[in-house]
């Protein structure tokens, strides 16, 4: 009796929560694929779609620049991901070799630094970048956003190197392999999955990042990433164009998240928790 009631309660909770979590995405879709007289111009728009059109999407692409910001976001995200593994792999390797007491302290230090408000850090950086001619550049935005992803990248690569058998490197060296060939031919291939995860997480964080981007590459539409440009369109009261933009920008992340789900088995989450 009580288990039946418990089951019923579970299902009611599941249904309500499912509706809450799917609803905003549903709204975005019916907003982007219905003619404006059913959505934007209506006092009480319908919750279910009554007509279908692609004209909102087509018009938006003609009216505002959507491709430019998305391209810049792509460039920034790839740069952030590459720098994350470029700096993260050697750091993880080095930290895995020293006493774990010290390396744990350093990782915690990185995560603590990450807790500082983005704006506190971003504003002075934007002034440095102004002097270095890095403001309003893809590279400048990537350099600043890198701060957000570095701790997790180091944590992931560190855990990966720690999980390798201790003798592995030693044996390779005894067999006559040089340090660099041991590193690139043996160690790196063995931790390729954590490296991919670190890259994808950095990529996704950068795709979403707003604070650093809006300070380093502000509302000059030609030089901004997609979140900043979307904010710009929303504040210029262009809801139809914004809806198109939001929808288009969400697609790559959903694809990536699906890829990531294959690799992610929860163990990296505990790294995410720390920061």
């Amino acid at each position: 009796m009580s288990t039946n009631r418990g089951k019923l309660g579970t299902y009611i909770a599941v249904i309500i929560l499912s509706i809450i979590f799917i609803y905003p995405l549903w709204i975005l879709i019916i907003y982007a694929f219905q003619p404006a007289y059913l959505t934007f111009d209506k006092l009480y728009p319908s919750q279910i779609p009554l007509a279908f059109t692609l004209s909102i999407l087509v018009q938006s692409f003609k009216k505002v620049d959507l491709i430019g910001p998305l391209t810049r976001s792509l460039e920034v995200a790839f740069m952030v991901g590459l720098i994350a593994i470029g700096l993260g792999i050697p750091a993880g390797y080095g930290l895995s070799k020293i006493t774990s007491k010290l390396s744990n302290k350093l990782v915690v230090f990185l995560f603590v630094i990450n807790m500082m408000p983005g704006l506190v850090v971003a504003i002075p950086i934007s002034i440095y970048f102004l002097h270095a001619n890095l403001d309003n550049t893809v590279f400048g935005v990537a350099l600043a956003q890198e701060l957000v992803v570095l701790p997790l990248s180091v944590f992931i690569t560190l855990s990966a190197f720690r999980s390798l058998p201790r003798d592995l490197e030693h044996q390779a060296r005894v067999d006559g392999a040089s340090l660099s060939s041991t590193f690139f031919r043996i160690l790196i291939p063995m931790i390729r999955v954590p490296i991919i995860v670190a890259f994808l997480l950095a990529w996704m964080t950068s795709w979403d990042e707003f604070t650093y981007a809006v300070i380093i590459a502000p509302i000059v539409p030609t030089d901004s990433t997609f979140p900043v440009t979307l904010y710009n369109y929303v504040s210029r009261n262009l809801p139809l164009e914004s809806a198109t933009f939001a929808l288009v920008a969400t697609i790559p992340v959903i694809i990536l998240a699906a890829v990531l789900q294959k690799y992610l088995k929860g163990q990296y989450l505990s790294g995410g928790l720390v920061g």
């Binding site: 979590f21 905003p24 709204i27 979140p227 979307l230 929303v234 920008a249 992340v253």
Partner: peptide, 26 residues
């Protein structure tokens, strides 16, 4: 799958959608 979906949606995108949902008019 449904529950973790919002993790993949950009902050600015979700902010925009909620601003449509809670508009006083429309």
């Amino acid at each position: 799958t449904l529950v973790i979906m919002p993790l993949g949606i950009s902050t600015v995108v979700s902010a925009f959608v909620f601003s449509i949902i809670f508009q006083a008019v429309g």
